[in-house]
Amino acid sequence: SLEEAIRRAEEALRKGQTFEYAGIRVTTQEALEKFRKWAEKQK
């Protein structure tokens, strides 16, 4: 689910890792916010 993907992205960010979902790379807090906004639109 998208909620699960967001949780995994947050977890990866805390560990300093890269999270990738549907071709979207989350490597920074800013990218995480963009990913969250994108995920909201997918619902």
Rank of each mutant, 00 (worst) to 15 (best):
W38F: 04
A12Y: 07
E40N: 08
R14G: 11
A31D: 15
E30T: 09
I6R: 01
R14L: 12
W38H: 02
A12Q: 06
R36E: 05
R8K: 12
G16D: 05
E4Y: 06
E20Q: 07
Q17H: 11
E4R: 06
A5F: 10
A31M: 11
F19L: 03
K15W: 10
W38Y: 05
A39C: 05
E40Y: 07
L32A: 01
E3M: 11
K34G: 11
Q17N: 10
F19Y: 10
K43D: 10
R8S: 11
T18I: 15
L32P: 00
L2Y: 10
E40D: 11
K41W: 12
R8L: 14
L2M: 10
K37Q: 14
V26S: 00
E33V: 08
L2W: 15
E3I: 10
A39F: 07
V26K: 00
A9D: 00
R25T: 14
L2T: 04
A22V: 06
G23L: 02
E30D: 12
E40P: 01
T18W: 12
I6Y: 06
F35R: 00
A9Q: 01
G16P: 01
K34H: 12
K43R: 08
L13I: 15
A31P: 00
Q42E: 10
T18D: 12
S1K: 12
V26H: 02
T27F: 07
E33P: 00
R8E: 13
L2G: 02
A9G: 04
G16K: 04
R36L: 15
K34R: 13
A5Y: 09
K41F: 12
S1R: 14
E20N: 06
T28I: 04
A39E: 02
L32E: 00
K15P: 01
S1I: 13
E11F: 02
R8C: 06
R14V: 09
R25A: 11
Q17T: 10
R8H: 11
T28E: 04
A5K: 04
A31E: 15
T27R: 06
Q29K: 10
T28L: 04
A5T: 09
E20M: 08
A22K: 11
T28K: 02
R25S: 13
F19E: 02
Y21P: 01
E33T: 07
E4Q: 10
F19R: 00
L32M: 07
R36A: 06
I6A: 03
Q17L: 14
G23D: 06
Q42H: 11
R7E: 10
R25E: 12
L2I: 10
A39P: 00
F19A: 01
E30S: 10
A39T: 06
K43S: 13
Q29W: 15
A12G: 03
S1L: 12
S1Y: 14
E20G: 02
K15L: 14
R25G: 05
A5W: 10
I6M: 09
R8F: 10
A39Q: 03
W38D: 03
E10K: 05
A12V: 04
Q29G: 08
L32I: 05
F19Q: 01
K15D: 12
A22G: 12
F35K: 00
I24G: 03
F35S: 00
E33M: 08
E33S: 07
E4H: 08
E10G: 05
Q29S: 10
T27Q: 11
T27W: 07
A5E: 07
A12E: 05
R25Y: 13
A31N: 10
A31L: 08
L13F: 09
E33N: 09
G16Q: 05
A9F: 04
K41T: 14
K15M: 14
S1G: 11
R7P: 03
E33F: 05
T27I: 06
R7F: 10
A31T: 13
F19I: 03
R8I: 08
E30G: 07
T18V: 15
A9Y: 03
S1E: 14
A22S: 09
R14D: 10
T18H: 13
E40T: 06
E3A: 11
E30K: 09
E33Y: 05
L13P: 00
V26Q: 01
K15Y: 10
L32H: 01
S1D: 15
E33Q: 09
T18K: 09
L2N: 02
A5R: 03
I6D: 01
L32K: 00
A39R: 02
A12M: 08
K41A: 15
T28D: 15
Y21W: 12
Q17R: 06
T18P: 14
I24H: 14
K15G: 11
R8N: 13
G16L: 03
K37H: 11
A12D: 03
R7W: 11
E40G: 06
E30N: 08
E40W: 07
G23Y: 03
T18C: 04
L2V: 08
G16I: 01
K43Y: 14
E20R: 04
R7A: 12
R14S: 14
E11Q: 08
K43P: 11
K43M: 15
E30V: 08
L32Q: 01
A39K: 02
I24W: 15
L32S: 00
R14W: 08
E20F: 08
A31F: 05
R14A: 15
Q29A: 12
E33D: 12
E11T: 06
A22M: 15
A22F: 09
I24S: 02
A22Q: 13
Q42D: 06
S1Q: 13
F35L: 10
Q29I: 12
R8W: 09
E10W: 05
Q42N: 10
G23C: 02
E11P: 00
Q42I: 13
T27P: 05
Q42P: 05
V26W: 05
I6G: 01
Q42F: 11
T27C: 03
A9L: 04
E4M: 09
Q29M: 14
R25N: 09
I24F: 15
E4N: 10
K41R: 11
A5P: 02
K15S: 12
E3W: 11
A39I: 14
E10N: 04
I24N: 04
K43N: 13
E3G: 08
L13G: 00
